[in-house]
Design a protein around this nucleic acid. Structure first.
Lengths: 334, 334
DNA sequence: CTGAAAGCGCTAACAT
DNA sequence: ATGTTAGCGCTTTCAG
């Protein structure tokens, strides 16, 4: 049999309420009775039933991390880093994290609202949401606390933490330029995500600023996926005018590209310079090591969690929009 | 105002019970009433309150993954892979995963029991538990479903999934031997974990079988931590007789060792052969790429989750002890 | 096929 | 300083 507050109360000859007061340290209880009750709690090894407590308190101290329902998600170092930041912060605030995989292709407007209504969460952090996700607007109409990560969306009711993606792409192109490259191609990321779009925009903008040539055949779409990038970057080698450098919207794509370049017996950085984006763990280890735009992924997670907790505890109100700085990490690939 | 089952009932002119029956698809309800109720549910956007449901059903469809309370845990590719396996399987069975960090140094006997009593979980998977963890025995005395991962403990009340660590270590030494190495050292893992102990045992056993020399100065302790291994492996270079190969109980230690070897201007594999253990993502990318004993980490997670779900659904009973095969992956470091 | 009553374990609000 | 009542939203049990 499970020990409940009632068992404690009976044994201590008090009411359940007094026990509850002792457990929560709220309200007045005579030191003596408190002492007695505490002793019995220890003896019986009582632990509060969180479910019962949540049913009345309406709070669970659990936050949900919404992730796309994809196999082997944690093998993506990008996700692992962000999640690491979130858990680190949750630890400090004594919140638990529950992982909620949602179907990427689910186009329903209530996909997130359903989760909210289940009442299991105090708040949620959404990872890798797409631009036209129909679930976000309805969610923002509720009062439920949530934060988007690496997704930029200016709205009075939406909170997000993102990196300066446009700036990052500009930095990358600038760097390639300073290294003497002039024919700069791009493996773009997913245009369904704001960061994918922003990085492409930054690339194009900087080409213009520097008066560099823009060519459609120099832009391919890797969708932030290594296998896609590996396949698509093939097109760059079939261009009428061969690029001498490539800005990749993420490191996995850059790694795929380097593999392809090697297969073609070309050299990095001599024949083709490569810059990535993110600074995942591998970036430092691939050969040649990868010059990349570092975005502070762990910080992104920490920041999102902090904002979420502020929202939950109502110490801050929406909208909270935060952009973190990026920096160029020069390695061997340029 | 939140929509509850009572609202639906009132609007449909039925009792709460009938609504409940429709929602759960249990018991008889006239097709017509069912239809009507379903329609109202849709209209009002009703979603069941999981908390309330759990309070009575005693089941939450949530499993806990117990992890040591360590910063940046997910950056450890070993953890990330196992977790990936667990989530993949949980997805299929429609269970949610909650992360429960526990203090590594907590020596209390009720550290896990407390969590169980909170009634938030249907079962749990424990990662990186130590041999003398005082919390495990008491937990096993309850009927609560749980599985240890990469921890071998034969007991009628304990379930685990582990790799064949002893065999793996033997494979590694055999391989080094076949490559002509004769002075084989070892960076051992944490002896607080069964897999650390087993790998050391396999190493020693195989040295004996092959009639190779054993020297205390050829064994250092890396505790499964790169920074520790990096520091400790220094001792190997101060040995009276220098080893010509090193079996490392984990890949991070092997990577640390390779860094150290390079700093000393020695060559891998010519001067020193190196074998790792785990086959983390990096193993393939470091230079030289790492020969290692691959343990199926994702499978380990999948397997643990499968067993746990069987335990929860009572289709199997403890004890369930499972050992997965390991294999040698030859790369450039030997 | 449907409903009424009771209760899961806890806390808020109001007594005393 | 402590107790009583009521109720969170749901399901189980038993009765019709």
């Amino acid at each position: 049999m499970r020990i409940t507050i009632a068992d404690i109360a009976k044994k201590a000859n008090v009411s359940k309420m007094t026990v509850s007061r002792v457990i929560n340290g709220r309200g007045y209880v005579a030191p003596k009775t408190a002492e007695k009750i505490k002793k019995i709690i220890d003896e019986l090894g009582y632990q509060p039933n969180l479910i019962a407590r949540s049913l009345v308190s309406k709070s669970t101290k659990i936050i949900g991390v919404i992730i796309p329902k994809v196999e082997h998600l944690f093998l993506d170092n990008y996700i692992a880093q962000i999640l690491s930041g979130i858990t680190d912060e949750a630890l400090k605030k004594d919140y638990r994290i529950i992982l909620i995989p949602v179907e990427y292709s689910d186009k329903s407007e209530d996909k997130y609202i359903k989760i909210v209504k289940n009442r299991l969460l105090d708040g949620m952090i959404l990872l890798k949401t797409i631009i036209d996700d129909p679930g976000i607007a309805p969610l923002s109409e509720t009062q439920f606390p949530f934060v988007l990560v690496n997704h930029k969306r200016y709205s009075k009711k939406i909170n997000f933490v993102d990196s300066k993606n446009i700036r990052g792409a500009e930095l990358a192109v600038e760097h390639l330029y300073s290294k003497g490259y002039r024919k700069i191609a791009c493996i773009a990321g997913s245009l369904h995500e704001t960061n994918g779009k922003d990085r492409l925009r930054g690339y194009l903008k900087k080409l213009e600023d520097l008066g560099l040539e823009k060519r459609d055949e120099w832009i391919v779409f890797g969708e932030f996926r290594k296998s896609v990038a590996y396949h698509e970057c093939e097109k760059l080698f079939k261009a009428k005018i061969l690029p001498d450098a490539v800005f990749c919207a993420d490191d996995y794509s850059a790694i795929a590209l380097i593999e392809k370049i090697k297969e073609r017996k070309l050299r990095v950085p001599e024949d083709i310079g490569v810059v990535g984006f993110d600074d995942i763990e591998l970036a430092e280890y691939v050969k040649p090591s990868l010059t990349t735009i570092r975005q502070p992924l762990i910080e992104l997670g920490i920041s999102a969690a902090k904002i979420l907790f502020d929202l939950i505890e109502e110490t801050r109100k929406p909208p909270i929009h935060k952009l973190l700085n990026v920096e160029l990490i020069q390695r061997e690939s340029t």
